[in-house]
Write a protein that binds this DNA or RNA. Structure first.
Lengths: 116, 116
DNA sequence: CTAACAGTTAAAGTTAACTCTAAGTCAAGA
DNA sequence: TCTTGACTTAGAGTTAACTTTAACTGTTAG
């Protein structure tokens, strides 16, 4: 199957239908189509895109920035450089964040070991 | 030195005075004292505590939960078990989160390498 | 044919975590 | 003494990211 109702897509990507509509309203999902009755139809491409949105969001990128990235993506090859620059910068941020998380992990573990 | 004005404490822990007052209002900093003129005086203990709050917060714990933890902490040895259980659970969460971050890092790197 | 259901929209409401404002106080320097 | 500046408070405002509501519509099972 390669077409999903909002309920099915919601299940598939583990986001509520509210959130999916919200993301679309915010311009993050420009390619979701509608059937003759006006209902959303999600394609595999849309689900892929949502997956990447979740990745960016899960690593601390704001929806606003994710939209910027998506807008560049829509402009194709012409904006490849800018787009990749965003990702490379974000990559650094994730690396930094993992470091910080590891430091915090040590702090929590130290507190656990303190036994007081 | 072991006493800090709110401005100094703010500088020291890299949080705004607004945030420090907010944390106090929320019950996260029960031991901040005031001088004769009613001004806050932060002790080294307070700064340590703020440091740990930042650690918990930075690893995704809500202020509400941090307050719960702090409240248990205030009750000393009697609540040691509960308190440590919270930390151990949180430790698992951090480990899981680091895993997720690493997965997302791979996804971003893959997208960068895609060159399209 | 009709009732139930799954969807639609615009707009209002919610939550967490700040962030700021307004009005006031107090200590210190010219 | 006067003013400046750093603080105080209660309470209002902000922001991001949803989440819900209300009113409505098209599809389908009986």
């Amino acid at each position: 199957m390669s077409l999903y109702t909002i309920a099915q897509a919601s299940e598939e990507v583990d986001l509520t239908p509210y959130t999916l509509r919200y993301y679309e309203k915010e311009g993050l999902l420009p390619n979701v189509t509608k059937d003759s009755g006006g209902r959303r139809k999600y394609h595999d491409d849309d689900l892929q895109r949502i997956g990447f949105i979740k990745c960016l969001k899960g690593t601390g990128m704001s929806l606003k920035q994710i939209k910027e990235y998506g807008d560049l993506y829509e402009q194709g090859k012409a904006k490849f450089k800018e787009r990749n620059a965003m990702l490379e910068e974000h990559r650094e941020k994730i690396l930094q964040e993992i470091k910080t998380q590891k430091k915090y992990l040590k702090m929590v573990e130290a507190k656990i070991e303190m036994k007081i």
